[in-house]
């Protein structure tokens, strides 16, 4: 069993060395949005603002199209990408809903009913068989 046994967890990107190396500029772009003046500059001209960060074309496209799971796949980390969501006025709970593909009310109902259970969500095999 390697140290990377977490790759068998479904629907999850573990922010490990490989993800972090790949996502450095994407995440540092998101980090810049912590400041109000940068949020304004980004929203005024997204493409020009992104030119400041040497991310890959794929990462850039994922940002422009707000493909939240794709950002994570390409090395984004949720605590960084959530700053982009905040810039768009999206709350953490609604962002979570979008990433799961559920609508916000259905997601909120699921959480009120106790959340997503661990049974059936432990391994990629669980999902393939489900």
């Amino acid at each position: 069993m390697s140290g990377n046994d977490y790759h068998d967890i479904p629907g999850t990107f573990v922010f490990d060395a490989e993800q972090s190396r790949q996502g450095y500029h994407l995440n540092m772009f998101c980090m810049s949005l912590r400041q109000a003046k940068n949020r304004e500059a980004f929203l005024a001209d997204e493409a020009a603002y992104l030119d400041r960060y040497p991310m890959t074309a794929e990462q850039r496209q994922a940002v422009l199209s707000r493909d939240w799971n794709e950002m994570l796949r390409l090395g984004g980390n949720i605590y960084y990408t959530s700053k982009l969501a905040a810039t768009d006025g999206i709350t953490f709970q609604d962002l979570a809903a979008i990433m799961t593909g559920m609508d916000r009310d259905a997601y909120r109902e699921m959480m009120l009913a106790g959340g997503r259970p661990i049974e059936g969500n432990r391994t990629k095999g669980d999902w393939d068989n489900g």
């Binding site: 629907g11 999850t12 962002l95 990433m99 959480m111 106790g114 969500n121």
Partner: peptide, 17 residues
């Protein structure tokens, strides 16, 4: 305690754990 904020498995909760 248990929580997952990201990707398709977001919303995971495990009271037994």
């Amino acid at each position: 305690m248990s929580h997952q904020l990201q990707a398709q498995r977001a919303g995971l909760i495990n009271p037994e754990f």
